[in-house]
């Protein structure tokens, strides 16, 4: 494997069993991840977009090995970790951290900020003294724009934006290489969101972080990501460098998603309106999963699932109709 790959997945699947009846028989499964093959290069921010039910959050959690995948591989650096026990994973936990969506749930309300921040160090750097841990916490809390004297306070004393900064500080305290940010700015007000996005951009360069940035907000992902992957029903349907994806979408779902974003500039533009909702991941449509809502679907789309094919430099799309000329909301 080339040295510049941070994390790679091969045919990653995560199915959640749906149990039925008094015998708890496994009747069906929610196919949250249905064969994801993806590489994240060292130092890049990969944006992951999709609607709810697409499996984007599950991908982030599975990469963090919150729960083992159903099948497939996760290669972190040069180690295959997807079958590791918690004991074997422990040294990797220092190198990968997570930033959560809800700033009100991600910090223990009964624990001081200092205790929350130093918690990862207790387990990842057991040789560190308590005062050294606090020094480190003070140092990290200042890099996220808060003052070092808040360590004795409790989460309820802070606003959502401040808590999110504390959550970011906790993720940074073990000097990780890879961070999964799961809707990290979605719960914040516009002006606070801008502050936190700037902070994430800043620390990403300062720490030379690799990041998976999971969000439903296309404008946010366009701002922060180097490459973007679009997910639909447990599969990646398109992945490309950010500007390329936004100006030359090659999958009808990407086109529709971008067209649906309301922006202050584009008033009453012609919209590609998708019909209905995302289908249930328990019984996704046959063939191309998007065909039931796709304005360009042909009967042949029901026959087989399209592979993720090359459409340009670093640009891949999974669509049976590569000849389509798709519209971009952005004038190039």
């Amino acid at each position: 494997m080339p040295a510049d790959v941070m994390i790679e997945t091969v045919a990653l699947k995560k199915h959640f069993p749906v149990r039925k009846g008094i015998l708890q028989r496994e009747a069906k499964a929610v196919r949250a991840l249905d064969g994801i093959s993806l590489t994240i290069r060292r130092g890049e921010v990969l944006g992951l977009v999709g609607e709810s039910g697409s499996g984007k959050s599950t991908l982030g959690k599975t990469l963090m090995m919150q729960e083992p995948p159903t099948s497939g591989q996760i290669v972190f650096g040069d180690t295959e970790i997807s079958r590791f026990s918690e004991r074997l994973l422990k040294p990797f936990r220092r190198r990968m951290q997570m930033i959560f969506q809800d700033p009100f749930s991600s910090l223990n309300p009964r624990m001081s900020v200092g205790d929350s921040l130093t918690m990862p160090l207790r387990f990842q750097a057991p040789d560190m003294s308590a005062s050294a841990r606090l020094d480190k916490a003070r140092q990290v809390i200042e890099t996220v724009g808060l003052s070092g004297d808040i360590l004795e306070r409790f989460p309820h004393e802070f606003s959502g934006g401040q808590r999110q900064r504390i959550g970011i500080a906790r993720a940074l305290i073990t000097d990780p290489e890879f961070i999964v940010a799961d809707e990290a700015v979605s719960a914040l007000d516009v002006s606070v969101q801008a502050q936190v996005l700037n902070l994430l951009t800043e620390i990403r360069h300062r720490w030379q972080l690799t990041m998976l940035f999971v969000t439903h907000d296309l404008a946010v992902v366009g701002h922060i990501a180097d490459r973007v992957a679009v997910m639909y029903l447990g599969k990646i349907v398109e992945v490309a460098p950010t500007r390329e994806l936004f100006t030359r979408p090659r999958h009808p779902y990407t086109e529709a998603l971008m067209s649906a974003v309301p922006t202050p500039e584009r008033r009453a533009h012609q919209r590609i309106m998708l019909e209905g909702d995302i289908p249930s991941p328990i019984s996704p449509p046959s063939g191309c999963a998007f065909r039931t809502r796709c304005p360009y679907a042909k009967p042949a789309c029901a026959d087989s699932a399209p592979p993720l094919d090359v459409r340009g430099t670093g640009h891949y799309a999974a669509c049976h109709r590569p000849e389509l000329e798709l519209a971009s909301p952005i004038a190039t």
Binding site: E86, L89, Q97, M119
Partner: peptide, 17 residues
């Protein structure tokens, strides 16, 4: 299932902690 517990687990915290 709350995020702060998950954060602790993902940091390698012991079951006792």
């Amino acid at each position: 299932e709350r995020d702060f517990t998950i954060a602790a687990r993902l940091s390698g915290a012991s079951a006792r902690w």
